[in-house]
Design a protein around this nucleic acid. Sequence first.
DNA 1: AAACCGATTGACTGGTCAGTCAGCCAGACC
DNA 2: GGTCTGGCTGACTGACCAGTCAATCGGTTT
Lengths: 201, 201
Amino acid sequence: MASKAPPIDKRRQILDAAIRVFARQGFHSTRVADIADEAGVAYGLVYHYFKSKDEVLNELFTERWSLLLTAIEEADASPTLEPRAKLEAVAGFIVDSYRHEPELMKVIIVEVTRAANSFGRTHLPEIRRAYDSIAKIVADGQQSNAFRRDVDATFASMSFYGAIEQLLSGWIFELIPASDADFEEAKTLVTATICDGLEPR
Amino acid sequence: MASKAPPIDKRRQILDAAIRVFARQGFHSTRVADIADEAGVAYGLVYHYFKSKDEVLNELFTERWSLLLTAIEEADASPTLEPRAKLEAVAGFIVDSYRHEPELMKVIIVEVTRAANSFGRTHLPEIRRAYDSIAKIVADGQQSNAFRRDVDATFASMSFYGAIEQLLSGWIFELIPASDADFEEAKTLVTATICDGLEPR
DNA sequence: AAACCGATTGACTGGTCAGTCAGCCAGACC
DNA sequence: GGTCTGGCTGACTGACCAGTCAATCGGTTT
């Protein structure tokens, strides 16, 4: 055989199965056996590739959160984008992440980001980095008079991120409609709400 | 004895202890024994007053969430308040709740509201009622031209509530400063951000 | 063909708790 | 003094499950 078929990547297979199972049952009520079954793999193999059940979730989170951090920092670094457009880019990235991988995003938000008492605690530094990067975009906007200065930048970034996460939660738990059109609308509307406000101009 | 000293209310004592322990360790990693110890009460007594460990948390949540629902609905019902002032009242109520009972609010947010996969699921209807009531305030504001109409009311209420909850999370996990002045500022700033936006007028 | 080695298997164990239950005790009432 | 009642006690149990490990498998090297 010219190229030896690489064995199916069992590690990846386990991670993908974990996404599905965690999304379906939540981290706490999935047993390691559920992951193994879903992946079509023996129980012990999970421990061959991961130190513990926790490490599986950590891996999923870290993999994706680093993409988010990169996206935010890239938006911030763009010399051509206006501050508002930078925020739009961030909102767009998060919404698209959910659109393309709703199960993974559900796991990350429900089990890590909004579970600051258990897993979130471990990842607080990384989570915080996202808030800080967004705050930096706002602060720069204030510097250049694109944004008013009487709203603290940290504060504004928390509100902005909180609004987005709440929308994702709404989609995740089917509290608000989640069609492609809704996703598109959301991207601009979060930014519009935060930048322009609800009152008429 | 003229008035027989009523026995110390052990049930209340258990609930208050549970607040402290849940806030300190999180629901999942507190054993029923921890609650009993903290309350200075025998293990079995917890089961005398509550069907299960879950029921203790449910009770804590329901007790307080109904206060919140009442507060929102009262603000909404006020004939004199402008829509914006109604939102301010809601934000104020939540911030004050945190200021006066940070441990209880921590438990409610971390273990129920943001744990929609476990406890939140049970209480989704009540949680949703809060969102709906806020959405109604926004919708009425749009009706009377106090708010612009091109932002969906449900959407706006999610953003508003999400922003507040994110702030509380920030305080809970010490990501942002939490002095009395910060609390006061937050009350007006959340509403200002959502109503006026970040861009200068 | 024999030795080697990493991937893979799944039965088993040790520890952890939620919830049970048989009974104790202190005051009320006879 | 005796009995009754219900708040109260805490040792015990049954279930559950993360993580271990000894054994097997299949491919590669010598």
